[in-house]
């Protein structure tokens, strides 16, 4: 039994079949990369698995239990966290507060106590703040904790989303293009982060176009094309698969993949 298992997921938007019978499994401490050309359905797969879209067919299992169709917050409560390709930041908040929201499920909410501002609430606020500062330090943003999120550069926001997802203390972390738009130094940094996260026993599912990054840190790679599974295997199997080279990597991609 795998920690997270998706089986036969399908979804269509109007005429576009974004996913057709796609599945994957991932386990503790493992890094699974999902790659494929633009529009292959990678983000859609994330959206279905995390409960934002309802699949037209297929199922998702967590710890072997069927969780298909559960709302996102219920899935989060079962240990699933994610980041977004196109950034979903709480822009009215500071960086620190963004991460604190990630602590939501770890906080006990009793409305009465919150309205009265009881000491227990204040203590909890302090705890969340401290934990969130640690996480910001972990992603290298401790200096900017109290800045409004609007003022942060793109690369920092990407890492802020990772910190927010980690604040959920997830068992499975799904990262949608964490290194997109990042410079080589920042990409290196994210590389290091993902490895550290996986070492702590978290299952990581990663969508990424940076082939060096993918090949370096993934245990397995799933290749999607036009909503379908094209190939799956270890990085070395995938990068020498002619179908993958044809549909996605091309000659340039192969070079990058081998350089890793």
């Amino acid at each position: 039994m795998s920690l997270l298992e998706a089986r036969g997921l399908s979804i269509a938007f109007g005429g576009v079949r974004a996913l057709e019978q796609v599945g994957f499994t991932v386990d503790r401490g493992e890094v699974l990369a999902i790659i494929g050309p633009n529009g292959a359905g990678k983000t859609t797969l994330f959206n279905v698995v995390t409960g934002l879209y309802r699949a037209h067919g297929g199922e998702v299992r967590l710890d072997g239990r069927d969780v298909t169709g559960l709302p996102p917050h219920a899935l989060a409560a079962r240990g699933l966290a994610r980041t977004f390709q196109n950034l979903e930041i709480f822009f009215r908040m500071s960086a620190l507060e963004n991460v604190m929201v990630g602590r939501h499920l770890k906080e006990r909410r009793r409305l009465g106590a919150e309205l009265l501002g009881l000491p227990s609430v204040l203590r909890e606020n302090r705890e969340s703040r401290a934990r969130s500062r640690d996480l910001l330090a972990f992603v290298g943003l401790e200096e900017r904790a109290d800045e409004p999120a609007t003022g942060l550069p793109y690369g920092a926001l990407k890492r802020l989303e990772i910190a927010r997802a980690l604040a959920c203390e997830p068992r499975i972390l799904m990262l949608d293009e964490p290194a997109a738009g990042c410079n080589p130094v920042e990409t290196e940094e994210i590389d290091r982060l993902i490895a550290a996260i996986a070492r702590q026993g978290v299952a990581v599912v990663l969508v990424e176009h940076d082939m060096r990054l993918v090949m370096r840190i993934s245990d397995r790679v799933l290749v999607l094309d036009q909503g379908r599974r094209l190939a799956e295997g270890t990085p070395s199997q995938v990068r020498s698969d002619p179908r993958v080279i044809d549909a996605y990597l091309g000659r340039h991609g192969v070079a990058a993949a081998h350089a890793a």
Binding site: G51, F84, I89
Partner: peptide, 15 residues
């Protein structure tokens, strides 16, 4: 405040 900015992001962290 979080759901004011992004209901989606709020929901995936468990709100």
């Amino acid at each position: 405040r979080a759901l004011h900015d992004s209901e989606i992001a709020a929901s995936v962290v468990g709100v």
